[in-house]
Amino acid sequence: PEEVRRLVEELYRKGVSPEQVKKILKKQGIDEREIEKVLRRIG
């Protein structure tokens, strides 16, 4: 979803590592598979 992409990109631009991005967003209840999809697209 758009909102997940925005959150991931925001953290990524701040220099947060992909592993940390995953941890942070998982705590917020976001599906890990969604996060990984976005990270793959960015990375």
Results as ranks from 00 to 15, higher is better:
residue 30 I to W: 13
residue 6 R to I: 08
residue 7 L to W: 07
residue 35 I to T: 03
residue 16 V to T: 08
residue 22 K to A: 08
residue 42 I to M: 12
residue 7 L to N: 02
residue 43 G to V: 15
residue 32 E to F: 02
residue 19 E to H: 13
residue 14 K to P: 02
residue 1 P to R: 09
residue 1 P to L: 13
residue 33 R to H: 12
residue 30 I to D: 00
residue 30 I to T: 02
residue 23 K to Q: 13
residue 26 K to E: 06
residue 33 R to N: 13
residue 11 L to I: 02
residue 17 S to A: 09
residue 7 L to K: 08
residue 20 Q to G: 10
residue 17 S to P: 13
residue 2 E to I: 11
residue 25 L to N: 00
residue 9 E to L: 15
residue 33 R to Q: 12
residue 40 R to I: 12
residue 22 K to I: 15
residue 23 K to R: 14
residue 35 I to P: 00
residue 36 E to T: 04
residue 34 E to I: 14
residue 24 I to M: 12
residue 34 E to A: 07
residue 13 R to C: 06
residue 25 L to H: 00
residue 19 E to L: 12
residue 12 Y to A: 04
residue 10 E to Q: 13
residue 6 R to E: 06
residue 18 P to Q: 08
residue 16 V to F: 14
residue 21 V to M: 10
residue 25 L to W: 00
residue 15 G to M: 04
residue 2 E to H: 10
residue 1 P to K: 08
residue 14 K to L: 13
residue 21 V to W: 03
residue 9 E to C: 15
residue 2 E to W: 11
residue 20 Q to N: 12
residue 9 E to A: 08
residue 15 G to H: 05
residue 41 R to P: 09
residue 19 E to F: 08
residue 34 E to Q: 07
residue 5 R to A: 14
residue 6 R to T: 07
residue 21 V to Q: 01
residue 38 V to A: 12
residue 31 D to N: 07
residue 39 L to Q: 04
residue 18 P to A: 10
residue 9 E to V: 14
residue 43 G to L: 07
residue 15 G to P: 01
residue 33 R to G: 11
residue 23 K to P: 03
residue 31 D to T: 06
residue 17 S to K: 09
residue 1 P to W: 13
residue 2 E to P: 07
residue 42 I to G: 04
residue 1 P to A: 11
residue 40 R to H: 13
residue 6 R to C: 04
residue 5 R to V: 13
residue 10 E to L: 14
residue 13 R to L: 07
residue 27 K to N: 10
residue 13 R to V: 06
residue 31 D to Y: 03
residue 17 S to E: 09
residue 15 G to Y: 03
residue 7 L to V: 06
residue 32 E to W: 04
residue 28 Q to T: 08
residue 23 K to Y: 13
residue 18 P to W: 10
residue 40 R to K: 12
residue 20 Q to K: 09
residue 3 E to N: 10
residue 10 E to M: 14
residue 35 I to L: 04
residue 14 K to R: 15
residue 43 G to Q: 15
residue 16 V to K: 14
residue 30 I to H: 10
residue 24 I to T: 07
residue 27 K to I: 10
residue 19 E to W: 10
residue 4 V to D: 01
residue 7 L to Y: 05
residue 22 K to P: 02
residue 12 Y to S: 05
residue 29 G to V: 01
residue 21 V to S: 02
residue 19 E to M: 12
residue 8 V to R: 00
